[in-house]
């Protein structure tokens, strides 16, 4: 049993990387505008379908398809933010929850109508298939690739947030939107851009995740809890917190399914309630 531990950890980290990639946008929107976006998973789904269409219908290489997935999801997020989401800032949580549940339902129905209700296949390039041995552990090359990409992106994001002017604006706005606005920061614009970027990253995560998470129209609902959980546990608006939470969740979920398969998803939900109890005020206010 223990001999499987390194493999389980590795799979958990790969899974956690995906959760991070998809959730980071949600974390920032929640931290910035206190907006509860239950429809966030829909942007990941959009990216997933964009990748499928790009590779299977237009025969584009996988790498290009990932860029397409990012772009399509980012555009979808940017447009929706401008047209719809913007009107809901500052409204009650009930309004936000209902509104985003409505969007989720629409996205599920639309995806079913266009692509059917089945699981979508993904064709990975041959170089990413197969296994390799690292430190005596057999690991899937694709998962290795995935972890590498996500860690590169996370570092990039951390640099963006800590080193650039735009990053400084994001941090100021997360800290206190009113004060930031008082300092002359265009908080709405900061939010538009981060929302777009976050949606794009979710789309990229959806595309990279087809092989791990699967892709069908119920995707936004199936993983909604996971994304929300990452954000609530990690603390909204922080990259490091979100990354840690995603890893903890990914590892626990994979390990739970491997070691106590009869408990199913019980492990993860129990973990969620326990974490929320340990930090009852919601971790939102804890970090920073």
């Amino acid at each position: 049993m223990l001999s499987a531990l390194p493999g389980v950890l590795f799979d958990g980290v790969a899974y956690g990387s995906l959760l991070f990639l998809i959730s980071i946008g949600l974390s920032v929107t929640l931290g910035l505008m206190n907006f509860i976006n239950l429809a966030h998973g829909a942007f990941a789904m959009v990216g997933g379908y964009a990748c499928v269409v790009a590779t299977l219908r237009y025969g584009l290489p996988f790498g290009v398809a990932l860029v397409v997935a990012f772009a399509v999801a980012a555009i979808a997020g940017g447009v929706l933010e401008r047209v719809l989401y913007r009107r809901l800032y500052g409204r009650s949580p009930l309004d936000q929850v209902l509104f985003t549940i409505g969007l989720t339902f629409m996205s599920i129905a639309a995806a079913t109508w266009v692509f059917g209700s089945g699981q979508q296949p993904v064709r990975l390039p041959d170089t990413l298939l197969g296994q390799t041995r690292i430190l005596g552990v057999d690991v899937g090359i694709y998962r290795l690739f995935l972890i590498a990409i996500v860690f590169a992106l996370a570092s990039g994001l951390a640099l963006l947030v800590t080193r650039t002017r735009f990053g400084a604006r994001i941090r100021a706005s997360v800290d206190d939107a009113r004060t930031a606005a008082g300092l002359g920061i265009d908080v709405e614009r900061v939010f538009s851009v981060t929302f777009t970027l976050g949606s794009g990253l979710a789309g990229l995560g959806g595309a990279l995740g087809i092989d791990v998470l699967g892709l069908d129209p119920t995707f936004p609902l199936k993983y909604m809890v996971y994304f929300l959980l990452v954000v609530v546990v990690g603390g909204a608006g922080t990259i490091v917190g979100t990354l840690c939470a995603a890893m903890v969740l990914g590892i626990f979920d994979v390990a739970g399914k491997y070691y106590v398969p009869w408990a199913g998803a019980f492990v993860i939900y129990a973990l969620m309630v326990a974490l929320l109890l340990l930090f009852p005020r919601g971790l939102l206010r804890r970090i920073r």
């Binding site: 929640l30 509860i36 939900y269 929320l276 919601g282």
Partner: peptide, 11 residues
């Protein structure tokens, strides 16, 4: 708060 409540009831 509201968000925590949403998550806990859902959980």
């Amino acid at each position: 708060e509201d968000l925590t409540r949403l998550m806990v009831t859902l959980g």
